[in-house]
Amino acid sequence: MIRDITLGQYYQGTSLIHRLDPRTKIIATILYIIVLFIAQNAFGLAISTLALIAVIALSKVPLGFILRGVKPIFIIIVFTFVLNLFMIPGEAIAVLGPLTITRESLRTASFLAGRLVLLIFGASLLTLTTKPIGLTDGIEKLISPLRRIGVPAHEIAMMMTIALRFIPTLLEETDKIMKAQQARGADFETGSLVKRAKNLIPILVPLFISSFRIAQDLAMAMEARCYRGGEGRTRMNSMQMTRLDLAGFAFQAAFAAIIIIFGR
């Protein structure tokens, strides 16, 4: 069901992690992902895992909640694992019919899957502990130096805000339209791939029209509230780096150093 998707959702809290400046968390997440790919040995991966566990514990987000959110992506991880398992030549350790598992392939597949899991947990922790608005504000602030070379920082952030705001609305709309067409005997579950794709037309056309209507209404409402781009605009919550963020950066630096020295 649509309501089960927690990926990208915010988990209300007041933990240390929640209180970090969004910019700190965005940078930390990017850094963490880079470090994950620098780490080449088991020690590196183990330290990365420990670091993530520590942060999850600090964030006080229940593990079950995170797991529920990443469930849909698990299939992709399993798929990449299996694909890698059979694709890399080397010293054979097991043979399954035409397929061979090698020492190298097992190692690569395990590392890749491990990295992906950590990456997804890390990224979802960012969205779980940061309000969407903080996230977009943080991104806007971080990319605003690029405005000089013509990157529309404010516009990008505003688009992300609006997308986040309307995803639930559009999901609900899709659900409604689907049910309405089902009530008219539409069938979305059986038939060939081509037929199923064709069956989506009765959903996609109304959804498209709805999106346009929303966009039009919203644009008008924004104009009525004196929106005229980022120029001269102030913010209610101005972001402020605190000592907590300094600590966060120190932790990050130590972690990265350990991986670079011992984890390769």
Partner: peptide, 15 residues
């Protein structure tokens, strides 16, 4: 406009 009620109310004054 916004994903949080109070941020939405702030949208006008911010502009």
């Amino acid at each position: 406009v916004s994903t949080i009620v109070e941020d939405d109310v702030a949208f006008g004054p911010e502009n």
